[in-house]
Amino acid sequence: MDAILLQILNGLDKGGAYALIALGLTLVFGTLGVVNFAHGALFMLGAFCAVTFNKLLNLESVVVDPEKTTAWGSPLETRTPYVEAWLGDFGVFLNDYSVPASIMLAIPVMLLLGIAMERGLIRHFYKRPHADQILVTFGLAIVIQEIIKHFFGANPIPQPAPDAFAGTVYVGQILGMGQTLAYPWWRIVYLLFSLGVIGAVFAFLQFTTYGMVVRAGMHDRQTVGFLGIDIERRFTVVFGLAAVVAGVAGVMYTPILPPDYHMGMEFLVLSFVVVVVGGMGSLGGAVAAGFLLGILQSFASMNEIKSLVPGIDHVIIYLVAVVILLTLPRGLLGRKGVMED
């Protein structure tokens, strides 16, 4: 029982990342009709926002004290990050919480990047075939990836979770199911965070006038245009929003997986599978499929199942995608008439 619960938890936090990326992909696809292969790169950019923020916080002043020496005989160096020197306790706090705090940096950066990307590039590809859209965004993904590699190197850069969340939490105790089930705090935080973001996006689309117009535009952009609404502009904002969602997903994922320059590509392939399984253009489907595939993947990597079907953990997602695509052409929750073929 514990093992099963553990696998579900494992799957949920990975599924959270898939769901967030897939949500953005679907949003862009549903509004702009563009297949964005650079979306994984946006996830990766978000993760590197966290890295940059952490680096900025850790800019330090070095004071060499010639009077005192260390045990090795060299002069003692006192290093204090500027933030701590200037802001005192709050600086220490900020340094500890650098990962969640870097969301503050990631949101404006990703929003601007997303809008620039849509205005500068994607806009010119609305009328071009899907193959061209795939190709140009694939090229863009390579470019972003290589620029990041140039500035941050090819090695993963680990990011610490805040001390308060660094340990494990005894989930079993909380649920009253025995003592043994322990789980990393940060992963639970990530799960809650992703649920929160997903909820926020849905609320935005469902309960605001702005979101209502966007949904109307997804349905029939021409009619919305006839009503005198500048739908293009709203769609640009939606693209920015999708970029932000991918970005913050990347930021919060850094303590779980140290970011490197090609993490985006790995997540992208899986997220596409998620989108397709959920149903092209269906937001709910993307989220559901994200969590579902995350859980399936973590179950497949249980030792009992691996010994039954060797290698299943590596292929389960793709296998499910193939089966779903062949049996349910619209995916799990796909709408009728959206990219059926």
Partner: peptide
Amino acid sequence: RSGIYFSILTLA
């Protein structure tokens, strides 16, 4: 399948 689904299936 065709179109983008074909691309994704082959990728998978």
